[in-house]
């Protein structure tokens, strides 16, 4: 695990369980994320990645377990937490009938930024969509839309950023630029990221630590290189496929030594 200069725990999940009727979507997840880390939540469709992120954002109420974000309980301090974190997903959009500028100014106010012009300009430049500022959001390409979503996600200078497949619809060039932008902001701000992706190369490149989920349970966690070594798989992608096909056969394995982090 790389040295991020801080071992403060900013996300602590203990025994997180979510049941929808007879379906157990999340089964007693326990993990924590240190400040400045990039954690990859991996697993096949339906493994529980998005459910876990939505629980951490307070969109879904867990059946049991506790979620502490930035030292605060999400059930009690949801709005306080939401003002300090943000989220971007390939599956959400901003209103297509507003311009890029209008969308960003509306969201900057929602996050309490009175004068956001400089920040909006900086983010548009960083994600290389400055020329779209006066265009209707509905007229943007999918790559530009993804980058606009990311601009929205950085408006409040979040301490934790939740990203649900942020590069899902991007061509390799733009995806690389997005990763570069994310890395740059992460380095500058000591940002923590919780990341889902089906692109294993991207995960290896981006994440300090990964958690493999299958059927709502953690089946493996550790750094990408340690996990590959421990599982004796040729690559993270091969391991992903094996878990997707036979996840129930995997015992929970914690690869490497989990780096201790204190509480915020």
């Amino acid at each position: 695990m790389k040295d991020n200069g801080s071992n403060v725990s900013v996300t602590e999940i203990k025994g997180l369980t979510k049941r929808f009727g007879t379906l157990t979507a999340l089964d007693c997840l326990t993990f924590r994320v240190c400040r400045g880390d990039i954690l990859g939540l991996l697993g096949p469709n339906g493994a529980g990645k998005t459910t876990a992120i939505h629980c951490m954002l307070g969109l879904i109420t867990p059946s049991s377990g506790s979620i502490r974000i930035l030292g605060l309980d999400i059930g009690r301090y949801r709005r306080k937490i939401l003002s300090r974190v943000n989220f971007s997903s390939a599956y959400t959009s901003l209103p297509s009938n507003l311009t890029v500028w209008e969308n960003l100014i509306v969201f900057s106010r929602l996050y309490g930024l009175k004068s956001a012009r400089k920040r909006i300009d900086m983010l548009l430049e960083l994600f290389e969509i400055g020329e779209t500022v006066d265009r209707l959001t509905g007229s943007l390409s999918s790559g530009q839309l993804t980058r606009l979503n990311l601009c929205k996600a950085f408006l409040n200078d979040p301490e934790i950023l939740f990203l649900d497949e942020p590069t899902a619809s991007l061509d390799p060039d733009i995806a690389a630029k997005v990763r570069q932008g994310l890395h740059e902001l992460q380095r500058q701000r000591g940002l923590t990221m919780i990341y889902t992706s089906h692109n294993m190369q991207e995960v290896e490149q981006m994440c300090d630590r990964v958690i493999f989920l299958a059927r709502g349970r953690i089946v493996m966690q550790g750094s990408p290189s340690e996990i590959i070594k421990q599982s004796k798989s040729p690559s993270l992608e091969d391991l992903f496929i094996a878990i997707a096909r036979n996840g129930h056969l995997y015992q929970t394995v914690i690869a490497g030594e989990e780096e201790p982090c204190g509480s915020e």
């Binding site: 307070g58 997903s89 959009s93």
Partner: peptide, 14 residues
């Protein structure tokens, strides 16, 4: 309809 509901609900607006 415009898939913006999550963006609103994860903002700090009550």
């Amino acid at each position: 309809w415009v898939k913006n509901i999550i963006n609103i609900f994860i903002s700090p607006i009550s």
